[in-house]
Amino acid sequence: MVSPATPYHNRSQLLRGIAFWESRGYRVSVAPGVGARDGYLAGSAETRARDLMSCFTDPEIDVVQCLQGGYGSNHTLPRLDFDLIAENPKPLVGYSDITSLHVAIRQRTGLVTFYGPGLMAMSAPDATALTQDRLVQVLAGNGAGPVPRDPQDPFLVTLAGGKVTAPLIGGDLWELRETLATPWEVQTEGALLFFEEVNVPTWQVDGMLAQLRHAGKLQGVAGVVVGQMAGCDWSHQRPSYPSNKSLEDVLEHYLAPLGVPVLYGLPLGHGSTLATVPLGVAATLDADRQTLTIEESGLQAPSDAMERDGS
Score class of each variant (00 low, 15 high):
H214R: 13
H214K: 12
A215Y: 07
A215G: 06
A215T: 06
G216I: 10
K217T: 08
K217V: 10
L218A: 08
Q219N: 12
Q219I: 06
G220T: 01
V221D: 08
V221A: 13
V221G: 11
A222H: 03
G223H: 00
G223E: 00
V224S: 08
Q228Y: 07
Q228E: 15
M229H: 01
A230D: 11
A230F: 11
G231E: 04
C232R: 08
D233G: 04
W234S: 04
W234D: 06
S235I: 08
H236M: 13
Q237W: 15
Q237R: 14
Q237C: 11
R238Q: 09
R238D: 04
P239K: 04
S240F: 12
S240C: 10
S240W: 12
S240M: 12
P242S: 07
P242N: 10
P242W: 08
P242H: 09
N244H: 13
S246I: 08
S246E: 09
L247S: 04
L247E: 08
E248V: 14
D249P: 06
V250Q: 00
V250I: 15
L251D: 00
E252A: 15
E252Q: 13
H253S: 10
Y254A: 01
L255F: 04
L255W: 04
A256I: 06
P257K: 09
L258T: 05
G259M: 05
P261W: 03
L263C: 07
Y264V: 08
G265I: 06
G265V: 07
L266H: 04
P267G: 04
L268I: 05
L268W: 04
G269N: 09
G269T: 06
H270A: 15
H270N: 15
H270L: 10
H270M: 13
G271A: 01
G271Y: 03
G271I: 03
S272Q: 14
S272V: 13
T273Y: 04
L274P: 09
T276L: 07
T276I: 00
V277T: 05
P278D: 03
L279H: 01
L279Q: 03
G280H: 01
G280C: 05
V281N: 12
V281Y: 09
A282P: 09
A282D: 14
T284K: 07
T284V: 10
L285R: 03
L285H: 02
L285I: 01
D286Q: 05
D288I: 04
D288G: 14
R289N: 13
Q290M: 11
Q290H: 06
T291R: 13
L292S: 09
L292P: 09
T293F: 10
E295V: 05
E296Y: 03
G298I: 00
G298D: 02
G298H: 01
L299Q: 09
L299P: 08
Q300G: 15
Q300L: 14
A301K: 13
P302C: 00
S303I: 09
E307N: 13
R308K: 11
R308E: 13
R308W: 13
G310R: 02
G310N: 03
S311L: 15
S311K: 15
